[in-house]
Structure formats: structure tokens, C-alpha cells
Design a protein around this nucleic acid. Structure first.
Length: 199
DNA sequence: TAGGCCATCTGGTCCT
DNA sequence: AGGACCAGATGGCCTA
């Protein structure tokens, strides 16, 4: 990496020569020696370095709570991928929350159909929105090879359920395309009787 | 070897 | 004046 510039290799502020000698600003600046300038530069660089380190710590904190595979064998998400995935994740959670609120509202509406009636008879409903899938081992295997994608990792063991009238039993999976190192969202439906995913 | 990602330095601007 | 923040430049490391 870059080494700190030495006082001899870097001249003092270029503005000093251009300053009007009669101005008070010049008098103040002129008092700053090359040595002092060097130490000031070191101080400023150190502050900037610390600021960037803090920013990276915050980025690591964000990575920790993101739903993707963690571990020594998994390449760390880049900053841009982390931010994009975080955005997708928030949008997905917001959508799930809205859907859940809507369903709860419907449940307490007099005369509304029971949850059993929301789904087709051949595919039993997932109990509630926001629950984790029960048979994740098989789910992960089913997701391992996707059409048109070489390999996609299932983010940890988290699947979020989105139920709706139009897409009964539909799941949204936040995924990482390991080839492109990009965050994507996949929707699939799970048949609870046979425990297979329909992509 | 090109391209992506990153750390660092640096000067400018804004705020307190 | 000093610190925080930002963006551009630069060079190192890694991977396809």
C-alpha cells in the first residue's frame, strides 16, 4: 500500500507562494513549517484512515445480518453487492410485512373466508407469513441447480413466506449468484405435501 | 493481462 | 481553526 509521504519528498502547501504577502492569511500560513505541515498531513491521513475503517466495520456489521452464506470458504460480499442485497432484503421484508398486515386484517374481517380456503386443494397452505421452512435440507438441494444459472447458494437457512391470493404459498428467496457475485431474489412455491419447490 | 475491488492519500467543501 | 465528509487519483492484490 501507499506509504506516508516524507517531508522531503512532498513540498509544503503550494498556496503559500501564491499568497499576497500583505494578507493576514499569508502571515498565519507562513508560520507553518514544512515539518509541521508534514505532521498535520499525517494527522489528517490518520483521521481519514480511521473514518474509512469505521465505515468498513459498519459494512461488516451489515454483512453479518444479511441473509447469505457466511463462512471462511465463502467470498465476502463486495461493498456494492452488500448495499444492493441490503436494499433487496429490506424491500422483501417490507413486502412481507405489508402482506402479513393485510392477511391479519382479512382474518379479522367478519365473513372473510378461512385461511384453508385461500389455497388450492392439492397444495396445502404454509401456516403463516414470515415463518421459516421446515425441510430446508431438501429445499437447498432443490435450489442447487437453477435453470440458466450455474450455481446459486441458498442464503443461510432463511426463507420468508409470502402468501397472497394470486400466488398462494409463494416464497421469496434472497439469493447470491456466486458466479456473478450478485444478489438476486427468487420466487418459488412449496407444495407442503411433497415438500418440493416449484420455481 | 485486463478488470474488479480495495486501501490510502489528497485537496476541496461544509459545518461547528 | 479543526474536524467530518466527499470524490478523484493512484497503486496493490486477486481472479478469470
Amino acid at each position: 500500500m501507499n506509504s506516508e509521504s516524507s517531508p522531503s519528498s512532498r513540498a509544503s502547501s503550494p498556496d503559500i507562494e501564491d499568497m499576497d504577502s500583505s494578507s493576514s492569511k499569508f502571515k498565519i500560513k507562513k508560520q507553518v513549517t514544512e515539518e509541521e505541515m508534514y505532521h498535520l498531513r499525517l494527522k489528517i491521513n490518520g483521521r481519514e484512515r480511521k473514518r474509512m475503517h469505521d465505515l468498513n466495520l459498519a459494512m461488516d456489521g451489515l454483512r453479518e445480518v444479511m441473509p447469505y452464506a457466511h463462512g471462511p470458504s465463502v467470498r465476502k460480499l463486495s461493498k456494492i453487492a452488500t448495499l444492493l442485497l441490503a436494499r433487496n432484503y429490506i424491500l422483501m421484508l417490507t413486502s412481507s410485512l405489508d402482506e402479513m398486515k393485510r392477511l391479519v386484517g382479512e382474518i379479522y374481517t367478519p365473513g372473510a373466508p378461512s385461511p384453508r380456503e385461500w389455497f388450492p386443494t392439492d397444495c396445502a397452505p404454509v401456516p403463516a407469513a414470515g415463518l421459516r421452512l421446515p425441510a430446508l435440507g431438501r429445499t437447498a438441494v432443490s435450489l442447487h441447480h437453477l435453470p440458466g444459472s450455474a450455481e446459486v447458494r441458498l442464503f443461510k437457512q432463511r426463507c420468508f413466506v409470502q402468501t397472497s391470493h394470486t400466488l398462494p404459498g409463494c416464497f421469496l428467496f434472497p439469493l447470491l449468484d456466486t458466479d456473478a457475485n450478485k444478489a438476486i431474489t427468487l420466487s418459488a412455491s412449496l407444495c407442503q405435501s411433497c415438500q418440493t419447490l416449484k420455481l
